[in-house]
Design a protein around this nucleic acid. Structure first.
Lengths: 196, 196
DNA sequence: TTCGGGGAATAACACTGTTATAGTCGAGTG
DNA sequence: CACTCGACTATAACAGTGTTATTCCCCGAA
């Protein structure tokens, strides 16, 4: 295969992943049909198979793209803030914001929609890369002498777990009132054991 | 409609929900087909529609049943332990155990598999009833003077969120090592800000 | 016994993912 | 420049899904 064609193909693949994410976030997983997707993009259903091999392949690409976007959001949120603790708070807010912005993609990333959709070690890599900014933010706090009580990775994973739990419960509709305020409180509570 | 028929129908409904949960946990959501379910139970697909009206109705019944089972597990775990803090730990362990025991049902309860599958206020009620034992356990600790720093409901929701986050990340395959130990640590960390 | 009605079985419909078949367009060669 | 070859595409067919219309049967009441 020539290089020009692959460029074209990559372009089409990007457009497909993008439009699929739009459909998924707008109308839910039931509306994400290969025929529907192909029609809105203006092609047939076959290119999806030549590009991704399968619908699972498309979902896997969306999965990776979602983690990539999440990582970008966390990274840009962490940059530009001098106070390491405030940067950590901004990262937490960015996490919730991006999760709420496209809830169905979040479901795809953290749920297992299909038994054949195994995350695999590659998925673990993209997830690690996505929450790397959080680890860096925690490490900044540790290096600045603001946090202690464990390795940065462990603390970061705990913070991630709390944020994810709050957002997940909120998305599931199991949050009685003032979700934003409850999220802020949870962030403070989860960081408390590690503050000096 | 006569009472006898409703009893029979209720029996069949229970069997359907039970077998559907078994199929879901064993082979995933893709295997949960109405024809498959009807065949294994030994009936046609029609009774499913007369009993639940829809596949969404069946999923909704499974949803409620899952929360009911979760609530039972938490309640039985909380009873029989004198030390309120140890009871809280047992509740947390029971939460993780039941979640891991039937992961796909957990997905159904905390994810939104279908856009038309709105949890609604009724779902919020069953969820509240399910984690009521946790609230009671926290209240016991507060009343015993072992915890403080907020209302029992707020503290319980925070603990729930942490447990749910840890279990959810573990189920998503995003846990590097020793998930049980990490879960225990997270429980301690999440309770630390409230211990006297 | 007869009749009526509610639920169940069968089969049809529209739709899905997937695949086999056929067609079409462009690039490389004589 | 004509031609052939090959990859990629669209069309259509296949198996299977949720759902529904039709038919049928069986059980209870008059």
């Amino acid at each position: 295969m020539g290089p020009v064609k692959t460029v074209k193909s990559d372009e089409l693949a990007l457009r497909l992943v993008d439009e699929a994410g739009r459909i998924l976030s707008a109308e839910g997983p039931a509306a994400l049909t290969l025929r529907r997707l192909a029609q809105t993009v203006g092609i047939s259903t076959m290119p999806v198979y030549t590009l991704f091999g399968d619908k699972r392949g498309l979902l896997s690409a969306m999965y990776r793209d979602g983690y990539r976007r999440l990582g970008d959001a966390l990274r840009t949120a962490g940059e530009g803030v001098d106070d390491p603790l405030l940067a950590l708070l901004d990262i937490g807010h960015a996490y919730r914001a991006t999760a709420l912005a496209n809830a169905h993609l979040y479901d795809l990333m953290f749920g297992r929609p299909d038994p054949a959709f195994e995350p695999g070690p590659e998925a673990q890599e993209v997830a690690d890369a996505a929450y790397r900014p959080l680890v860096d933010g925690v490490r900044r706090c540790v290096d600045a002498g603001l946090m202690t009580g464990g390795e940065a990775e462990r603390i970061a994973f705990h913070l991630w777990s709390v944020s994810h739990g709050m957002v997940s419960l909120e998305l599931a509709g199991l949050q009685r009132s003032h979700p934003a305020q409850a999220y802020d409180e949870a962030m403070v509570f989860s960081a408390t054991p590690f503050l000096v």
